[in-house]
C-alpha cells in the first residue's frame, strides 16, 4: 500500500510525463521580482474600495439567488435520491448518477463554458452556482436521509399513504434541519465562489480582481482580497449562528 502510494507520488512529479516539476529554483530566481510584489500585497491600497461596493453587491446577489434557486430544486431531488424516500431503484439511481455527472465538472469550468454560451454577465454565474449547489446539497442531504431512522415511513405506508404523501407530511419536516443546514453551507460556499466567478467573466467582484491583476496593482488586489475575506467570514458567522438555532 505504502509502496504503491510512493510510486504514484513519484509518477506525479516527473515533468516529462506531465507531472509537477518541483521547482524551488524558480522561487529563488523570481524572488526579487516577487518580493516587490509581495511588498505591494502587504501595503493594501484602500482607495480601491469605493469601486468594489457595486461588484460586491452583485457577488452577494448571485450567491443569494443561486442558493435560493438551488434549494428549491435540491429539496425534491434529495428526496428522490434517498432510498427511504424513493424505494424505486430505477429513478433513484438515475437521479444519483446524473448528479454525480453534474458534480464531476468544477464550478469555474461551468462558468467559462456558460460565459461563452450566453455572454458575459451574472446569468452564467448564477447558473454555475445553482449547478454546483444542487450537486453537493443533494448528495449530503440524501446520504443523511439514507442513514437516519426511517421507521416512521412504515406508519405512513400502513395508513395507506402514497410515497409522495409520506415524503411531504413526514419526511420533509423530519429532514428539514439537515436540509437547512446544508443550504446555509452552500450559501457560504457560494459567496466564496461567486467572488472569483468574475475572473472568467461571470459577474461580481472577480471582474475587478482580474482587472487590477492585469495592471499589476497588487496593492489594490490585496485590499480586495481582504474585503472578500471579511465578507466571507461575516457570512460564515451569521450562517453558523443560524445553524445553531436549527434543532
Amino acid at each position: 500500500m505504502i509502496a504503491a502510494l510512493a510510486a504514484f507520488t513519484a509518477l506525479t512529479t516527473i515533468p516529462a510525463l506531465g507531472g509537477v516539476e518541483i521547482d524551488l529554483e524558480s522561487i529563488a530566481r523570481n524572488w526579487s521580482n516577487g518580493a516587490q510584489r509581495v511588498g505591494m500585497l502587504l501595503t493594501p491600497d484602500w482607495s480601491i474600495l469605493p469601486r468594489t461596493w457595486e461588484p460586491m453587491y452583485q457577488t452577494l446577489s448571485m450567491a443569494m439567488v443561486g442558493t435560493v434557486i438551488s434549494a428549491a430544486l435540491a429539496i425534491p431531488l434529495s428526496l428522490w435520491a434517498a432510498r427511504p424516500t424513493n424505494p424505486n431503484g430505477l429513478t433513484r439511481r438515475a437521479v444519483r448518477f446524473s448528479l454525480n455527472v453534474v458534480r464531476a465538472i468544477p464550478d469555474l469550468v461551468y462558468a467559462t463554458i456558460l460565459v461563452a454560451m450566453v455572454g458575459v454577465g451574472t446569468l452564467p454565474g448564477v447558473i454555475t452556482l445553482v449547478l454546483f449547489d444542487i450537486g453537493i446539497v443533494v448528495k449530503l442531504v440524501s446520504e443523511s436521509i439514507d442513514s437516519a431512522d426511517s421507521s416512521y415511513m412504515e406508519a405512513g405506508r400502513a395508513a395507506g399513504g402514497t410515497q409522495t404523501q409520506i415524503n411531504k407530511v413526514t419526511a420533509l419536516p423530519q429532514s428539514w434541519p439537515v436540509m437547512a443546514s446544508q443550504i446555509l453551507y452552500s450559501l457560504e460556499l457560494n459567496v466564496r465562489i461567486s467572488a472569483i466567478l468574475g475572473i472568467v467573466g461571470a459577474g461580481g467582484i472577480g471582474r475587478l480582481i482580474d482587472e487590477v491583476r492585469g495592471f499589476y496593482r497588487y496593492d489594490a488586489l490585496s485590499a480586495i482580497i481582504i474585503e472578500i475575506l471579511v465578507v466571507v467570514l461575516i457570512i460564515e458567522v451569521i450562517s453558523n449562528g443560524l445553524r445553531k438555532r436549527l434543532r
Binding site: V20, S26, N30, A35, R192, I199, I228
Partner: peptide
C-alpha cells in the same frame, strides 16, 4: 485556518504566482 478557508484557491494561486510563475508547481 479560518482565514485560509475563506480565501479561494484561485486567489491563493494568483498571489503565489507572483513569486513562482505560471507553472503546475504553483497550482500544487
Amino acid at each position: 485556518f479560518a482565514v485560509i478557508r475563506a480565501v479561494p484557491e484561485v486567489i491563493i494561486a494568483i498571489i503565489l504566482l507572483t513569486v513562482t510563475g505560471l507553472t503546475p508547481f504553483t497550482g500544487a
